[in-house]
Amino acid sequence: MHDDAPLSTRILQELATAPEGGGMSLPRLGKRLGLGASVLMRELTLMGDATIGGVRGPGWARVVQLDERWVAYITPVGREQLSADPR
């Protein structure tokens, strides 16, 4: 992983290491990236497909709550973005 890569790329790189169809808990993702949960949630919100300020997000990742845990997943569109990113 390249530390000079945009945060979204670094998140996608980490999420891509999860088994196919598997996600990564926010605490684990935060530990691997050295970031807090609030920073991750802000970035993951922008990376999702929600409409914010009238602009729909790219849909690279999704976050779901499973019981008490928040889990992030890379989407097929996110995998495409990651493979297209030269970093």
Rank of each mutant, 00 (worst) to 15 (best):
V64M: 07
T51P: 01
V71H: 02
L26F: 06
A18W: 13
W70D: 05
K31L: 14
V39N: 12
E43D: 10
A61C: 08
R69T: 14
A50T: 08
R69L: 15
L66I: 13
G34M: 02
R56Q: 14
G57P: 03
D49W: 03
A37M: 11
M41I: 08
T45P: 08
R32D: 07
G34K: 00
T51H: 02
M41E: 11
G22V: 01
T45Y: 07
G30W: 09
E20W: 06
D49K: 04
G57H: 06
V64P: 03
L46K: 13
E20Q: 13
M47T: 06
A72V: 02
E43M: 14
R28M: 15
A37P: 10
R28D: 15
L33C: 05
A72E: 02
S25N: 07
L26N: 05
R42K: 13
R28W: 12
Q65L: 05
G36M: 08
V55H: 01
R69N: 14
R28C: 14
L44W: 04
R42I: 11
G22C: 03
G54Q: 05
E20Y: 08
R32S: 13
P58E: 02
T51Q: 07
S38A: 09
L35H: 11
R62T: 09
D67N: 05
W70V: 00
T45K: 11
K31R: 15
A50F: 11
A37W: 11
P58S: 00
L40Y: 08
W60L: 01
G36E: 10
P58V: 00
P19M: 08
R32H: 12
G21S: 10
R62V: 08
D49E: 12
L46E: 08
D49P: 01
A37K: 15
L33N: 03
A72C: 01
M24G: 08
D67K: 09
K31S: 15
A18P: 12
R69W: 11
G23S: 01
R69C: 13
A18T: 12
L29N: 04
T45A: 08
D67Q: 12
S25R: 04
M41K: 13
L26V: 10
P19T: 04
G53H: 07
R62N: 03
V71R: 01
L44P: 02
Q65W: 00
G21K: 09
G36C: 12
E68F: 04
G34P: 00
L46H: 14
K31Y: 15
A37E: 13
A72S: 01
S25D: 07
R32Q: 12
L66F: 09
D49T: 07
L29C: 04
M47D: 05
T51M: 10
R56E: 15
E68Y: 06
P19F: 03
D67F: 07
S38V: 08
G57L: 09
L40R: 11
V64L: 12
L26D: 03
G22H: 11
L66H: 09
G34E: 06
W60N: 00
A72M: 01
R28Y: 14
T45F: 06
M47C: 02
D67G: 05
G54K: 04
A18K: 15
T51K: 10
G53K: 09
A72L: 02
G22A: 14
S38N: 03
G30I: 13
E43K: 15
